[in-house]
Nucleic acid binder design. Sequence first.
DNA 1: GAGTCGCTGCTGGTCTGACCAGATCGGCGG
DNA 2: CCGCCGATCTGGTCAGACCAGCAGCGACTC
Lengths: 258, 258
Amino acid sequence: MTDTGRTATAEHRAYRRVVDDVEARIASGELRPGDRLPSERELVDRYGIARSSVREALRVLESLELVRSAPRDPRGPLVLPITSAPIRRSLGLLTSSRTISLPQLVQLRMVIDASTNLMAALRRTPEHLVALERNMARMRGLLHHSYAEFGRADLEFHEILADAAGHELVRLYGEAVREAVLELIQQTILDADDQEAHKLRSIRHHTAVFDAISAGDGRAASRLARESLYQYYADHVGDEDREIMAALVSECGGRVDP
Amino acid sequence: MTDTGRTATAEHRAYRRVVDDVEARIASGELRPGDRLPSERELVDRYGIARSSVREALRVLESLELVRSAPRDPRGPLVLPITSAPIRRSLGLLTSSRTISLPQLVQLRMVIDASTNLMAALRRTPEHLVALERNMARMRGLLHHSYAEFGRADLEFHEILADAAGHELVRLYGEAVREAVLELIQQTILDADDQEAHKLRSIRHHTAVFDAISAGDGRAASRLARESLYQYYADHVGDEDREIMAALVSECGGRVDP
DNA sequence: GAGTCGCTGCTGGTCTGACCAGATCGGCGG
DNA sequence: CCGCCGATCTGGTCAGACCAGCAGCGACTC
C-alpha cells in the first residue's frame, strides 16, 4: 500500500508539519542560530514524509529567512539569526503596491527613531561616540557623491545609534522602517535639485544629535529626531498626515517651524 | 539528454525564476488580486522546469501570502490581495523568540501605545467611542473572572484604539508587541494576589484614556499610555530598564510617581 | 424530452526513485 | 609520509506515478 494522496486541505498539508514544528522550536529557543537541521533525507525519516514535501518545507523556511541550506553541505540546513529582512521584504511589497504610504512610514519612523535616540543617549559608550564621529566624517566626504551612497551612510548613522540604544527589538523594527523609507524616498524626492541642501541638512542634523547624545540629553536627542523628520517630509505629505506629524513633534515638547 | 542537476548555487535556483517572475508581475500590477496563475502542469511547460520546482515556488509564494492554491481547483492558483499578514507573522516570531526580554517589550509598547493613543485622539470617529465604551462595560463585568479572559478584553480595548488611529503599520507593530507582552505577563506577574487591584487599575486607566481621546487631547492620551505602563511594570524590571522607562515617560512631559 | 448515472479528464497533494555536481573522508599505492 | 582515487555523503533537479475529488459530457432510463 502506498499511503499517498490522502485528502489534505488547509493545514493538513504534509510540509506544514515540518514548517510549524521548526518554527515553533526556533521561537521557543530550542533551535538557536548556528544550529543545524538534519539533512533532507534524515528529515524524510523523521517526519515520515517524502523528500519533495521536506523540500517544500525548507523552501518556505528559507523564504522566512529562518534557515538556509547550502548545496553539498553535509552539516545540513543552517538556522539563521532572526533578522528584520523578511519584514523589510514584505514592507517593500506593501509600499510598492501602495498599500502602505510614505507618510505612514515616516510617522512610524519618527516614533522609533526618537526612542532610539533617547535610549542611545542613556546607554552609549565612548566607542559608540567614536563610531558616530567616524561616520559623520565619511558623510561629509560624500557630499558630492551619489545620493544612493550618501543615503547608505545616513542609514549607517542610525544603525550605530540603534546599536548604542541596546534595544534589539527597536533596532530591528527601526531597520525595517528606515530602509523602506529610504527606498521610497529615492523614487519620490530624488528629483529635487536641492539635493546638496538636503545633504547639508542631514549632516547638521546628525551633528546636533551627536551633541545631544554625547551630552546624555535623551529628551533633546529624541526631539531632534522628530523635528528633523518633520522638516524633511512635511512638504511631501497631505494635510491630514502633516497634522499627525506635527502632533508627534509636539508630543515630546518639540516645535514645528512655521 | 536529461539536463538535470546543474550547478545551482544561490539565485540560480530553478524555483526562484518562478517566484521572482510572479512577484515582479504582482508588484507591477500586471497580476491583480483575483487573477489566476496557470495550473502547475502548465507552469511546468511555461518555465521548462519540473513540477517539484514549480511546487516549491508556489509554496514560497503562498508563504508570502501572494497566492493561494486550492486542491482540485481547475482555475489554478489564486492571486491574493496584498496584506500585512506576513509582516505580522514575522513580527510575532521576532518578539516571541525568547531573545527579547519583558522590559524591552514593555518599553517598545510604551512608545507604540503612546503613538496609537495620540493618533486615535485626532482621528477617532463617534463609532470608535461607542466601541470603546462597550468594551469598558465588558471589562467591568469581567472583574471577577479569570485573568486570561480579562486580558483578552484589555487587548481588545487597545485594538479598537489602533483601529481608531487609522495607521496600519502602527496597528501591526502594536498588535505584535501587545500580544507578546500579555503572553509573557501571564507567566510572570500572574501569581500576584492583588489581581483585582490590577484589574481595577486597568479599568481606571482605560477610562482616563477614553476621556482624553473623546476630548481630542492627543498629548494627554499619549502621556497616559506611558505613565500607566510604567506604573504597571516598573517594579518588575531591573534598575537600568526602569531608568529607560522613566525616560520614556518624561520624554513626553509625563511624571513618574514617587 | 428531461433527469440521472457514470465515465473521462482535469486539478492539486504526495510519493518513489533516479541522476548530477561537488564536497568529504578513508584507504591504497607510491 | 604524502598524494591520489573512489565510496559516500549532500542538496538540486527531474520524470513518472498514484490518489482524491470536482466538472463536463454523453449515454441510458423514465
